[in-house]
């Protein structure tokens, strides 16, 4: 579905690259997660793939179309949800969707149904200028699937949403994927990525550090962690130790000898912890 080879991009047209030698492939029907901290180059890559940014260097094909020469027809197959919601504030939610659906040549979805799906039922005829940030974001998300896309680009689909709604959105993404939709998901939310993605790419400073499935990553990097609760000077303290790192092991032994242990669990490393281990960077 997506083929990217040696992609570079510089906003200043010099060797100050926001995206550097990025290569990857996304196959049909998979959910591909693009993970990285703020400013890593996630949106830049996605914008090149969708023709919003000019392709400067590299080879990119999306949904069978060469991105060097973008033709409008290509977007019949593509949906894109933006990081920053962008809807007409003077139009109502429904008018926004009604207008948008007319810009495609393929069968489109019913706006009312889409609005219900993202929890905007009852707000159809409200001007989006009066919407909250999260409501606009949900509308932008709903809009991106109006043309029944085969390939769906999602830039931070759950950012800024309350947990209940974020979980709804997550379910919608899963459902669409079950129907065969290929998904390119950009996020820095590791829980979402871990739950949804077949494969993830870790990107930092414009470079991809690694691409693998969350499962493999856990087998490879997910050494067991021990979470200990103990009492020190009358206070309950919680700490996590690696069972591999030497200094951690020593500390743990010390702890068991000196303090009263309340609870002790082993737990699997999260994707976030693996990310930090692989890239040496936090995800914020």
């Amino acid at each position: 579905m997506i083929k990217v080879k040696n992609l570079y991009h510089s906003y200043s047209n010099d060797d100050n690259y926001a995206v550097k030698d990025v290569s990857f492939e996304v196959t049909k029907g998979e959910i591909f997660g693009f993970l990285g901290p703020s400013g890593a180059g996630k949106s830049t890559t996605q914008n090149i793939l969708t023709g919003l940014l000019e392709l400067q260097k590299g080879e990119v094909s999306v949904a069978g179309y060469d991105i060097k020469k973008i033709i409008p027809k290509m977007f019949n197959k593509i949906g894109m949800s933006f990081e920053q919601s962008n809807v007409y504030s003077k139009l109502t939610a429904k008018e926004n969707l009604e207008f948008y659906r007319k810009l495609f040549d393929v069968k489109t979805r019913n706006p009312d149904e889409l609005l219900r799906l993202v929890g905007l039922k009852g707000k159809e005829n409200k001007k989006t200028g009066d919407f909250s940030k999260g409501m606009k974001h949900r509308l932008t998300f709903a809009r991106s699937m109006i043309n029944n896309p085969e390939l769906w680009f999602l830039d931070e689909p759950t950012t800024g949403l309350d947990p209940a709604i974020a979980s709804e959105i997550k379910n919608i993404i899963k459902e669409q994927n079950d129907k065969g939709v290929t998904i390119f998901l950009t996020t820095h939310n590791m829980y979402i990525a871990e739950e949804l993605c077949n494969r993830v790419a870790f990107i930092i400073d414009g470079e991809i550090k690694l691409i693998d499935s969350p499962k493999n990553l856990k087998l490879q990097y997910g050494d067991k962690l021990v979470e200990v609760e103990y009492i020190e000077n009358g206070n309950l303290i919680q700490e996590t130790f690696s069972t591999v790192i030497k200094s951690d092991k020593k500390k743990l032994q010390n702890l068991i000898g000196k303090h009263e242990i309340q609870t002790m669990h082993t737990k699997e490393a999260t994707l976030e912890e693996i990310f930090i281990k692989v890239t040496g960077r936090r995800l914020v």
């Binding site: 977007f75 019949n76 593509i78 919601s85 962008n86 948008y100």
Partner: peptide, 12 residues
Amino acid sequence: EGVIKAYAVTAS
């Protein structure tokens, strides 16, 4: 409002 971007990813 950024709506030009939204327009740019349609078949129009």
